[in-house]
Design a binder for these strands. Sequence first.
DNA 1: CCTACCGATCGGTAGG
DNA 2: CCTACCGATCGGTAGG
Lengths: 199, 199
Amino acid sequence: MVETTRRREIEDAASSLFREHGYSGTSVRDIARALDIQGASLYAHVTSKQDVLWSIVDKAADRFEAAADAALLGVGGSRSGPGSRMDALVRAHVRVVVDDLERASVFVHDWRSLSVGRRVEMLARRDAYEARFRAIIADGVATGAFAPVDPVVAASYVLTALNGIVAWYRPDGRVSPATLVEIYTDLSRRAVRARATEH
Amino acid sequence: MVETTRRREIEDAASSLFREHGYSGTSVRDIARALDIQGASLYAHVTSKQDVLWSIVDKAADRFEAAADAALLGVGGSRSGPGSRMDALVRAHVRVVVDDLERASVFVHDWRSLSVGRRVEMLARRDAYEARFRAIIADGVATGAFAPVDPVVAASYVLTALNGIVAWYRPDGRVSPATLVEIYTDLSRRAVRARATEH
DNA sequence: CCTACCGATCGGTAGG
DNA sequence: CCTACCGATCGGTAGG
């Protein structure tokens, strides 16, 4: 399916509706209504409702992975310490989330509505992504830069906190996206760092 | 509606299904099938699907509030420092979550499917609940026990992390519920505490 | 708790 | 992108 303007408009409308009502709570006619066309007309652009969900989730996963790659590369990879790498990953993740809250919300919540094959595929990608956090935390614990936390639990803690942004954050509120990125980076770094007296 | 054994079985089954497929993704017949009865037979025990959702969410909210009350009372209220009060709140919250992951998941995710009036009511209760965390964090920042974090953002960070447990935690895995409670309390306390050199 | 049934809506197709 | 339509399923009611 080629990427057209209409196709992007459909995914924009669908992301917004999926975020507010969930995949099951959104009908094909709801999406069409947002675009002022008939429900059946949507099928001139997409093959199924499931296909729209997959496009949104797949591209969102691409964005998170690309941002993490770039962030680690930018900070010099494993030549830099676990603290800097953790900060870079958190910063990149929060940026992707606040950059498109609708699509991030669908990625976070609605991937469970994917068909079995795609859900399994996405679960593997999510696990590989989360493994970057686990590895950095384990490294920090090993060097003593981080407190002796369980890397699996700590990575889940931090990532669910970052993903939780989609549930409460309003970009037009008191806290700007840039400020949110910095606050979340600080909170995440502090959650795993060792006491100042320990190193 | 009186609380009967059957009624509780219905809410148990509904919680499990809502957790896995969401409120919209679960049909009345799905719930009935889990209890080996006909879809229409469910209406001998409940007045509507929405009514079942409300019961689950309302009772879950009761549990979180009661646990927070007891936790603050147990730690001596405002006579104890912000650190102890924060620990008590976090511990209580995580205990309620791991004690019934299905109902906690419905409370966290499916309250958005409540009818408008009930959704507004629940939003107010959630805000009052979250305000306890905000107040304690603001207190800790004022006394210097906590880092100079934004109390609103920090409370959202911590609470979404705690609620995120429902998305990944498996109680039959490597980490016992009791251990999870301790790790999460440590991570949350560390996220907001001041550097050891600062106090 | 059952059978039988209701109108509304679902995702999707045919044919233009 | 439209009209017209499909079979399936939805939440819920009637009457036992």
